[in-house]
Amino acid sequence: MTHNPEGPQHLPLADLPTTDLSDLYPDAPVVAPLFREFGGRPRFTGRAVTLRVHENNPLVRETLSTPGEGRVLVVDGGGSLNCALLGGQLGELGERGGWAGVIVNGCVRDTAELQGLNLGIRALAAHPRRSGKQPGGERDVPVTFAGVTIHPGDRISADEDGILILPPDAHDPA
């Protein structure tokens, strides 16, 4: 827990727990508590890069192969529980590329490997089957799942208490 004797209003947003952010931004959407933690970084924050795919992950690989620059990849897999959209190899790509985290509205695999990465990872469940390799999907589109809509550029903050979506213009408290 981050503690500042002057109160949360004097910490940068990236250092605030979601509980304090929720108090500062009471209208900020909160992702329904459906997601499990799979990565080795329980707390992460960054700007959203969004994807919409269905049971195929080439676009996930392509995106994680680009510089993450501290951003969060949000993958809307339609909530499919039929295969994993992210595994150890793609998690390593994300870690090496400087991504802060990945949120998958779907499944992951290689969970022991994912736990060892310095990457925040949230997903609905684990699944041993890999995804298909057909190209396709959409990038940088609004995605809606778990009671929220996430737009490209939204600020994502995730920790042990949940996932909060702040608007792109949210700024550090004065």
Score class of each variant (00 low, 15 high):
108 V>D: 02
14 A>G: 10
165 I>A: 03
42 P>Y: 03
159 D>M: 03
151 H>E: 15
18 T>W: 08
15 D>M: 15
123 A>L: 09
34 L>M: 10
95 E>D: 12
9 Q>W: 15
162 G>F: 05
135 P>F: 04
37 E>T: 11
155 R>K: 13
162 G>A: 04
78 G>K: 05
168 P>Q: 12
94 G>I: 08
154 D>K: 01
103 I>A: 08
38 F>H: 09
164 L>H: 01
92 E>W: 09
101 G>R: 08
156 I>Y: 06
103 I>G: 06
117 L>N: 01
38 F>L: 02
98 G>H: 11
56 N>H: 15
138 E>P: 00
21 L>G: 01
122 R>H: 12
113 E>I: 13
67 P>I: 05
130 R>H: 10
53 V>W: 07
165 I>V: 15
62 E>R: 13
169 D>E: 15
108 V>H: 03
14 A>C: 11
61 R>H: 14
61 R>A: 12
69 E>F: 00
168 P>K: 10
43 R>V: 14
66 T>H: 10
84 A>K: 03
51 L>D: 06
164 L>T: 01
9 Q>F: 13
107 C>W: 00
56 N>Q: 12
156 I>T: 06
169 D>L: 04
21 L>V: 02
15 D>V: 08
56 N>Y: 00
109 R>T: 13
15 D>G: 09
11 L>R: 14
25 Y>A: 03
92 E>K: 15
93 L>C: 06
35 F>Q: 07
83 C>A: 12
138 E>V: 05
